[in-house]
């Protein structure tokens, strides 16, 4: 059975004046795949991701996300994806419940759906006694788990996660990854950036960007074989060092 691709990228390029932030990148991501999008700071990851979620226009090339072209159907793309980042996820001065209602409303869910979904979400996360607490009062790890669930409220086909676990404690970081696996097993595609190289090992496939280009893309196992090292950390160090 051929895998259905939910992200299809061909020669995607983004230039800012003379500077080429993303150079001709091409790749596909399949349904239910956990795809790790790695690279050093400034390698072009965020720029590439912004094009994929429909908030930045490519200079050249083409990308289709959830079946829609990011250039011509950016609004459709946004409706069919979820997004969370370390910097912005939820409103700190709203409660957990209020955040759910707010984001559910933005995605155009009916109030009965929102009610039902918020019950499920709070149950699954075991947050009954916290549902009416301000998000700002939660530990970072909890915030990130709630943010992940909120980004899934509208049943997106793909969820984009931009360094979702930075600074999160080791146990919660792993619980977060269990949530990722759970969604992937349901067929949701996960597109994730991280600086934790052990998390790179959790991905089905990993791409590594260096200076705007994708310099490596394969399963963690094959990448380790290709570079003859025993960890993704070493793959990363080898690639990024060699280019410099």
């Amino acid at each position: 059975m051929k895998k259905e691709n939910v992200i299809q990228v061909e020669n995607l390029t983004k230039m800012f004046g003379d500077f080429t932030a993303v150079k001709n990148i091409s790749f596909e991501v399949g349904r239910g795949e956990v795809f790790g999008f790695l690279g050093a700071n400034g390698a072009g990851k965020t720029t590439a991701m912004k094009m994929l979620i429909g908030i930045s226009k490519p200079t050249h090339g083409k990308a289709t996300v959830a079946g829609y072209d990011v250039l011509t159907h950016a609004e459709k793309v946004k409706r069919n994806i979820g997004y969370m980042s370390q910097r912005f996820s939820l409103y700190n001065d709203l409660t957990i419940k209020e955040n759910i209602v707010f984001f559910g409303g933005i995605y155009g869910l009916s109030s009965s759906t929102i009610k039902e979904k918020s019950q499920t979400l709070i149950n699954e996360l075991g947050l009954h006694d916290k549902a009416n607490s301000l998000v700002g009062s939660l530990p970072l790890g909890w915030k990130q788990k709630v943010a992940f669930s909120v980004a899934l409220l509208h049943n997106p086909k793909i969820i984009f996660l931009d360094e979702p676990t930075g600074g999160v404690d080791p146990i919660t970081r792993r619980q977060f990854w269990e949530m990722i696996y759970r969604e992937a097993s349901k067929g949701v595609t996960i597109f994730v950036t991280t600086h934790y190289m052990d998390e790179a090992e959790y991905c089905d496939r990993v791409s590594i960007m260096v200076a705007g280009k994708i310099e490596a893309l394969d399963t963690p196992k094959n990448l380790k074989g290709q570079f003859q090292v025993d960890s993704m950390n070493k793959v990363f160090l080898k690639l990024a060092r060699n280019i410099e």
């Binding site: 700071n41 390698a43 360094e163 600086h195 190289m197 990363f236 160090l237 990024a240």
Partner: peptide, 13 residues
């Protein structure tokens, strides 16, 4: 205080 948070593995090293 957390000089390497959010920093990529090469720069951290």
């Amino acid at each position: 205080d957390e000089p390497t948070t959010g920093v990529d593995p090469v720069s951290r090293k």
